[in-house]
Design a protein around this nucleic acid. Structure first.
Lengths: 147, 147
DNA sequence: GAACACGCAACTATAAATGTTACATGTTTC
DNA sequence: GAAACATGTAACATTTATAGTTGCGTGTTC
């Protein structure tokens, strides 16, 4: 995994959790499925917990689960919860001394801000429920009669 | 300079060149003004030459100048000429084996494609002429009576 | 109290980007 | 034609952001 994988990781994992919302999943399980490390999962999930999307529990039967119904968590919630910026910010100096730079910065900042709004609007039309896999016998069993 | 500075560098430099389109500028001059290296300028400008936005000339009075009028070069032209992606691509595997990943990938790809279109549309409404600094006596002199 | 799971800090590894050096090619000037 | 100049390009070094790793502390269940 390389760049900007936090959002991918989060959406992928939450999508699966949406398929079985009652089930607690450990960082290790999630990490194994996503091909990454448990600490990385905890880092990412920690932000989502702070954002009110996930609940975590310590101890023997601990782990992670969704804090709300899958239908009530949008992709925009996850995106903002992670405080990421898919829309690249313009990294000019804040107070450019040259007029060209100043004009450019102003125009680009405006455009990028609009783009960010647009992205959020689009992401908010999909919920975790839209991602979950069709329920199968196996996963139903896993919910009701986990060992 | 750090990340994604190619577009910033290009727009900044072209904005200045739009203020005095006749004047040849060397990589070294441009690099000095932008606080970077001449080779970096050549790398970036090379792409814009291939895209038909710039002309370069070797030799004694060589350097760079705009291939078209500033009014006829939009920010979108520069953006596409550099083949950059301000809109972060979704870096999932192309053929995800898991249904959650597949659904996610499809939806995100669609959204990002739309965002890219939107960005281009916005960038195409500004030309280099809109960036150039107000003409002063000094710069007029520089055009007509350069040493 | 032993096993388990998160919380978190510190460190390492890796990859993308820029910066640098070196040299070749083409142009103009003398 | 030689010298000066500027681009063209490849190879290498440096920097920076990100992910990955280790270690240990805290809380919870058995």
């Amino acid at each position: 995994m390389k760049r900007n994988s936090r959002l991918s990781l989060a959406l992928h994992a939450l999508g699966h959790m949406a398929s079985a919302p009652e089930r607690m999943q450990t960082s290790a399980e999630i990490a194994a499925h996503a091909g990454t490390n448990a600490v990385v999962v905890r880092r990412v999930f920690g932000k989502l917990r702070n954002a009110g999307l996930l609940l975590s529990e310590k101890g023997h039967a601990g782990g992670w689960r969704l804090a709300r119904l899958p239908e009530e968590i949008t992709l925009a919630d996850v995106y903002t919860g992670l405080e990421e910026q898919l829309i690249a910010p313009s990294r000019d100096s804040d107070a450019p001394d040259c007029s060209v730079e100043h004009t450019l910065h102003t125009k680009l900042a405006h455009i990028m801000s609009d783009m960010e709004d647009m992205l959020l609007k689009r992401l908010s039309t999909t919920t975790l429920a839209d991602l979950r896999q069709p329920m199968r016998e196996a996963s139903l069993d896993a919910v009701s009669s986990a060992p």
